[in-house]
Computed example of a mutant assay.
Amino acid sequence: MSPFLSTLFKIAVFSLFVGAGLSFVNISAEDILGSVGLSPLQLWIYMLEFRDWAIPNMILGAFIVVPVWLVIYLFRPPRAG
């Protein structure tokens, strides 16, 4: 398994155990959100607004980053071995 997928799996398993522990002591996601002044609906709206902002900016940045990366990759000296 790749290191990235392995790390994602470990984070998912650890999150499951922490969530189960919090559930065991009767702490819910709504309780934690409420302590910082958010509701689940407000959090969902913020996530959608972030998505609507991030995707166009990622595409815009890719117009510069991808060609620069490609030029650097093509002119890099070959690796030994």
Rank of each mutant, 00 (worst) to 15 (best):
S2Y: 02
S2V: 00
S2H: 01
S2T: 14
P3C: 01
P3H: 09
F4R: 00
F4E: 06
L5V: 10
L5W: 00
L5C: 02
T7F: 07
T7V: 09
I11K: 05
I11F: 09
A12P: 00
F14C: 09
F14E: 10
S15P: 00
V18H: 05
V18C: 02
V18T: 13
G19K: 03
A20K: 06
G21T: 13
L22Q: 03
F24Y: 13
F24L: 06
N26T: 11
I27Y: 02
I27A: 01
A29T: 14
E30R: 13
I32E: 06
I32M: 15
I32T: 11
L33H: 06
L33G: 05
L33T: 12
S35H: 12
S35A: 14
V36S: 05
V36A: 11
G37M: 13
L38N: 02
L38E: 09
S39H: 09
L41W: 10
Q42L: 07
L43R: 02
M47K: 12
M47F: 11
L48I: 13
L48V: 14
L48F: 13
F50V: 07
F50I: 06
R51L: 14
R51H: 08
R51K: 09
W53H: 07
W53E: 03
W53Q: 06
A54K: 07
A54W: 11
I55F: 15
P56H: 00
N57C: 05
N57T: 04
I59Y: 12
L60M: 10
L60K: 15
G61L: 12
A62I: 00
A62K: 08
I64V: 15
I64K: 07
V65A: 15
V65Y: 10
P67N: 09
P67G: 07
P67C: 06
W69H: 01
W69G: 09
V71P: 08
I72C: 10
I72H: 05
I72Q: 08
I72S: 09
I72M: 09
Y73G: 01
P77R: 13
P78A: 01
